[in-house]
Design a protein around this nucleic acid. Structure first.
Lengths: 327, 327
DNA sequence: CGCGGTTTTGAAAGCGTGTGCATTCATGAT
DNA sequence: ATCATGAATGCACACGCTTTCAAAACCGCG
């Protein structure tokens, strides 16, 4: 039923090896014979079975992409760019969705069983042991958006502290004095770094946060926390959010209360997702360099796949402050 | 280097067949021997090579997911739900991203070469010939969001005309008389159906569109087209958009011009993406039943994969009108 | 025409797994 | 004690491909 290389060989009057060579770039075969074989193959609708090929070749061309809930605008934006990057390198993304809170390990195990050539991990928590297991199975990994403390895997991550330093400067420049914070999920690397970065930078200006609250990185949670802040005593004149989604919620909250942004309350996000530019928000935010992040991640990963062995590498990419209307 | 079933067999003092059977549910093997083998396997970090397994078994467990630009909120929302659904059925999504305007065929061909068990196609144009090629290669497909005219593939699609009929009712009920349309990319199935549905339903009320414009389903294009409409002569008192992203842009445009929504101009979208509920928009929109769409698609697909052969099937799911603040 | 050297070519040996088949083993009935 | 029955086990083949290896074909040159 399924047409195999043998079928093509029989039909073209050559050996199966010849068929294989016809499909292998730079293999030793006569040009006109290759052309004939390819014509026959096309006629029969034959394409080499990549499963079988990878059984010998050792490479599958698959890259596991571990990503969190895709309805989050940041994750989907990142996945968009990442998947394009993977395809443009002739590889294919095997999607490994993990809901927040879910264990990454069983899912990644399964992906490893597919003999993926590598993995980009942008969600879930990964420890050194897991990283080593992946590399031991011949699948180097690169961790995106956080840094593995123990080493053992390359990581690419935006410089959250530098980003927050720029936010602090802006807060001071616009004369904000009662500055509140809405964090994301507390256990995440980016949340910790962004919070630390902000408090440290503010301290450098002799200031500190007046209030701290936690959301879960969703727009709804930003809305809820911002409502609480803005209706509480000693209303803040600036709210810094752990990401853009929450900042969008915060802007909505301010609007609902009839407050002007940025005059009454300045609001700042992080990431610069596409929606941040939408006019009713016009979010001032820290632009996360995701294009560069993707490029760097895949460079690192393909080099490892090619066999380069070196100590694990951490790349920190500098963000930029995108000043719009909200702060 | 890579640990194989032979390694486990040697270490456990059994034959390789025994190892295989230990990992096969319901195979004939002594319980305690299976336990021993599994223990040894776990110790060695062995997992069956799914590439090799699928070479004999005939099934790979992979589902090709053809999807457009993921930075679009609708696409990423859909992919989120779809990928969860695929995983919950024990299958794995192989991502096949195709940019709008790009040919779907070469990408899908490559996915077929991976011997995917099936494909969910939610982007790009697919004709009957392509559908037949897929099924001939043992990969049934289901087309989502549009209907294949010639048959040859199952399709699941929301009833765009019914949705637009509800919009028309609402337009009449709120007394709109100058109704404009902002369409999406003209060549898409959903755009044609939604436009036809709206004009037909309006005609049923003895009304018609006063102006028609085309965007590209992006928020920016919605903004641009709405600005043109709202600053032109004979300003419309309602704008119906081909999707939510453009409707969001239209709301932003109205706000920029100082118009009140919905008093001065009513705005309506389609899909009910998560962002539609965000407060500054509070979009009145047609809710696309994506959860049901995903369920129906995967039901259809898994049944085909299981071998059920029947005439191709088209499922039309009824949308609902979600009335918020914008119309 | 012969010869060393370079391509081409096909046969065959894997790659890691599932499974049909024949064999062995344990079990219980006669 | 013997035999029939069923489960458990190992051997070997198949899956579809790549690639090594040795043989064959080809080339230019003397």
């Amino acid at each position: 039923m399924r047409v195999t290389a043998d079928d093509v060989a029989a039909r073209a009057g050559v050996s199966r090896s010849a068929v294989s060579r016809a499909f292998t770039e730079g293999a030793s075969i006569q040009p006109d014979k290759r052309a004939h074989i390819l014509a026959v193959a096309d006629d029969l609708g034959y394409r080499p079975n990549l499963m079988a090929r990878s059984l010998t070749g050792g490479a599958t061309g698959l890259i596991a992409v571990v990503v969190g809930s895709l309805s989050s605008p940041y994750e989907s934006w990142f996945l968009d760019i990442l998947s394009q990057g993977i395809r443009s390198r002739g590889l294919w993304p095997l999607l490994v969705p993990v809901s927040p809170g879910q264990e990454i390990e069983p899912a990644l195990d399964h992906a490893l069983a597919y003999q993926v050539d590598g993995a980009v991990i942008a969600a879930g928590s990964v420890n050194q042991k897991l990283a080593e297991r992946c590399t031991a199975n011949g699948a180097p990994i690169v961790v995106v958006g956080r840094v593995l403390d123990g080493g053992g895997a390359d990581s690419v991550c935006c410089d959250n502290r530098a980003g927050m330093a720029m936010v602090a400067d802006r807060l001071v420049a616009t004369g904000r004095s009662r500055i509140a914070w809405i964090g994301g999920r507390a256990d995440t690397f980016s949340n910790v770094e962004r919070f630390d970065g902000l408090t440290a930078a503010l301290a450098g200006h002799g200031r500190s946060l007046t209030e701290m609250r936690s959301g879960d990185y969703s727009t709804d949670s930003g809305m809820v926390q911002a409502l609480a802040l803005l209706t509480g005593p000693d209303r803040p004149d600036a709210i810094v959010c752990g990401n853009d989604a929450m900042a969008i919620g915060a802007v909505a909250a301010a609007r609902r209360l009839g407050l002007r942004v940025p005059e009454d309350v300045g609001i700042c996000g992080f990431d610069d997702i596409p929606a941040a530019a939408w006019e009713p928000f016009s979010l001032t935010t820290v632009a996360n360099p995701v294009v560069e992040t993707v490029r760097a991640s895949l460079d690192l990963l393909t080099r490892r796949i090619a066999g380069e062995t070196a100590a694990s590498f951490t790349i920190r990419l500098p963000p930029t402050l995108r000043i719009r209307q909200s702060l």
